[in-house]
């Protein structure tokens, strides 16, 4: 039995359909990354699975228990780290951990022991007895995740765990999550970043406008999107069709033409030697070129290729 099952989940906020029948499974011991732009429905999904929001249709099960029918049983099995650090800043890290343990109805001594274990595990022993308001952003996030693990949850939910962190803290957070993954923590994480999902998740579910639009391993998705991209910038807009024709013969799939930027982008399956080849071919066709670059697909490219629109067209995340 998968640890998380969602079948045809529907959620409406007024007239906005936040979720339009989402099916999802997370097998035990695996990490599923839910990838999508702001407003795609990721947070709504997490809120329903963690009993914070009732679904309007479909059903969701954690370890086979229905989240809408038996929320208290579900709550005893999950850990949630939301987008906002859910910590009492007036207390120390240790007190925060013990407090959550007590609310899971652990005895005083086991709660204290577990808090100690987690401080050690999350490299917070020295900071454990300091007030949380003195913590850095990265330390706060670590404590936040530690608090989600206090009762050894069956499933861990991480809602955009690195949003708002500086690059160094983000890398540290990735290392930490990778360690949890290696230990077999069943996790559902949401993210706006392709590289984050790529690095942390076994399987990626791409969600947009409340629907799953693609699903698979990172490799499968990349094959679908195309691996790397060749991007050519031309000085003269009139030469864009010629440039597109040339690039169409070098890459595969239809080249994307951006009139505003004067750019043509095409998927490529190899990067070695591709730039000289492209420059030669464009030169032969008489197309003047400003710039030729090879880059990894961004989330925008994924969305463009899967949905035909970029991430910016999506409205704000509804609650």
């Amino acid at each position: 039995m998968p640890a998380v099952v969602s079948e045809g989940l529907v959620k409406k906020f007024g007239k906005t359909e936040a979720l339009r029948g989402v099916d999802l499974q997370v097998e035990r011991g695996t990490v599923v990354g839910m990838l999508g732009p702001n407003g795609a429905g990721k947070t709504t999904m997490v809120r329903i699975l963690t009993t914070l929001l009732p679904p309007d249709g479909g059903r969701a099960l954690i370890d086979g228990i229905d989240v809408a029918r038996e929320p208290q049983k579900v709550r005893a099995r999950i850990g949630l780290t939301g987008q906002y650090a859910a910590i009492d800043e007036r207390l120390t890290g240790r007190e925060n951990l013990e407090h959550i343990g007590r609310l899971f109805h652990m005895g005083r001594a086991p709660a204290r022991q577990r808090a100690g274990e987690l401080l050690e595990r999350f490299d917070l022993v020295d900071a454990g007895d300091r007030l949380v308001k003195e913590y850095s952003g990265g330390m706060g996030r670590r404590l936040d995740i530690a608090m989600s693990l206090i009762a050894k949850p069956s499933v861990l939910f991480l809602d955009e765990p690195t949003t708002g962190l500086d690059p160094r803290s983000r890398l540290a957070m990735w290392d930490l999550i990778e360690e949890l993954v290696a230990e077999g923590t069943t996790t559902l994480l949401t993210t706006q970043y392709l590289d984050e999902a790529d690095r942390l998740a076994h399987r990626i579910v791409v969600i947009d406008h409340g629907s799953v639009i693609a699903e698979g391993t990172a490799e499968e998705l990349k094959r679908q999107i195309g691996g790397e991209l060749l991007e050519v910038t031309v000085p003269d807009r009139a030469s864009l069709p010629d440039a597109a024709r040339v690039l169409g013969s070098i890459g595969y799939g239809a080249p994307q033409v951006d009139d505003a930027l004067g750019q043509v982008t095409v998927s490529i399956d190899r990067s070695i030697g591709i730039v000289p080849a492209a420059v030669r071919a464009l030169d032969l066709a008489g197309v003047k070129v400003d710039d030729v670059v090879v880059r990894r697909p961004s989330l925008d490219d994924v969305f463009l290729s899967l949905t035909g629109h970029t991430t910016e067209d999506t409205p704000e995340d509804p609650r």
Partner: peptide, 14 residues
């Protein structure tokens, strides 16, 4: 470093 085991053995109770 102590492992954080996440077996279905729960501490929490409803």
């Amino acid at each position: 470093m102590a492992a954080v085991d996440t077996l279905p053995e729960q501490h929490g109770s409803a």
